[in-house]
Design a protein around this nucleic acid. Structure first.
Lengths: 192, 192
DNA sequence: GCTACTATACCGGCCGGACGGTTTTCTTCA
DNA sequence: TGAAGAAAACCGTCCGGCCGGTATAGTAGC
């Protein structure tokens, strides 16, 4: 009777519902995320959804926490892939935001945008988990052994690219991404 | 009978309504912008508002067009204030986004954020006027006589700072702003 | 008599959430 | 081993409220 994704009780209904919510925001906008729609897409009744998430707020909160956790771990592996030394975190950020794997960036950013927007619309305080991520990120950038401002500038550039995708202000070609990465890399060099 | 702003028929009810709409989004979030509330805050009846703006969409469209126009002219004067030569547009962007006049930036960004979010929530296509602004901006950056990617990187950094304010992810101190501006200025120098 | 409104009443639609049931799964103990 | 009861995991419906938009009747000033 269910019309989506998976009929079997499925591994972790929890995550299936969160996925459905994200997909809905991506395809129909923030207003398209309703409990009923999310439930249907997840192959669950509305009552069933409310059994797992007591309210829309709880649902969004869970989505945001899952996203933050995902970001934390993925960025950590991204840092681990960079050679040690000054500017390690900043280099990771450049790779993270302007790296070669464009498809991965796109998908990740779109999911993130969906969760951001939906959560923010419901209650700006729901973004707190992300704010916590930013706190640790900014601390890491400060201790990165770079000229002052360089790390923060790189971080801001990454966020800007993210925003251009959130609101679909403009699209960047792979060459442009590479050029930006190259330009930002100049900030990694010590001051003359 | 009106309870806000100005009782007199006022200079330009049009703009008074748009101001009220922006204020509402800033103080009560996107969901707080309703036709009734906007009308009340502007000191106008709901019918009166609908006399000026036939629908909520028309209201948001007008708000966004006003904002785009404001951006266009203000940024033009910002460019005019910079000395000529390569990197003029990029320098203007640094001044625009990380300049000294913090209060002005804050106020402008908050107004912009409110309009962005409300319009995007109603219908992403409403952002088209802003997208048009970005098109001309990007063209200007391309013809700026800078190493490839430098202008785009600076523009992205400005947008990132804007986003951190939209979602209140973190606040930057004046020193941090100055440091970022200094770091970005390194990108203006010709490649060695 | 036309413009620029005010004031009020109303409609249709939608959404979050509550609620009362029902089925499935696990546990317990004779 | 298997019956029985408890707990978990759902289902489907209904309700109250709000919002965008329409309609209508009236009015103040030029």
């Amino acid at each position: 009777m269910s019309s989506a994704l998976s009929d079997r009780p499925g591994p972790d209904v929890h995550n299936r519902i969160l996925d459905a919510a994200e997909t809905l925001v991506q395809t129909r906008g923030v207003a398209g995320l309703t409990l009923e729609a999310a439930a249907r897409l997840a192959g669950v009744s509305k009552g069933g959804l409310l059994y797992h998430f007591a309210s829309k707020e709880a649902l969004l909160d869970a989505a945001l926490k899952r996203l933050s956790e995902y970001f934390r771990t993925e960025f950590e592996t991204c840092v681990a892939a960079q050679p040690e030394g000054p500017g390690r975190v900043a280099r990771s950020m450049i790779a993270w935001a302007f790296g070669e794997d464009e498809m991965a960036c796109d998908e990740r950013d779109e999911r993130a945008a969906a969760v951001y927007l939906a959560a923010f619309h419901h209650d700006p305080a729901l973004l707190d988990p992300i704010r916590a991520v930013y706190v640790t990120l900014r601390q890491a950038v400060l201790a990165d052994g770079l000229p002052p401002g360089a790390g923060a500038a790189i971080m801001a550039a990454g966020d800007g690219a993210f925003m251009s995708r959130i609101f679909q202000l403009y699209a960047m070609s792979p060459e442009e991404r590479r050029a930006i990465a190259a330009a930002l890399s100049r900030l990694l060099e010590p001051l003359p």
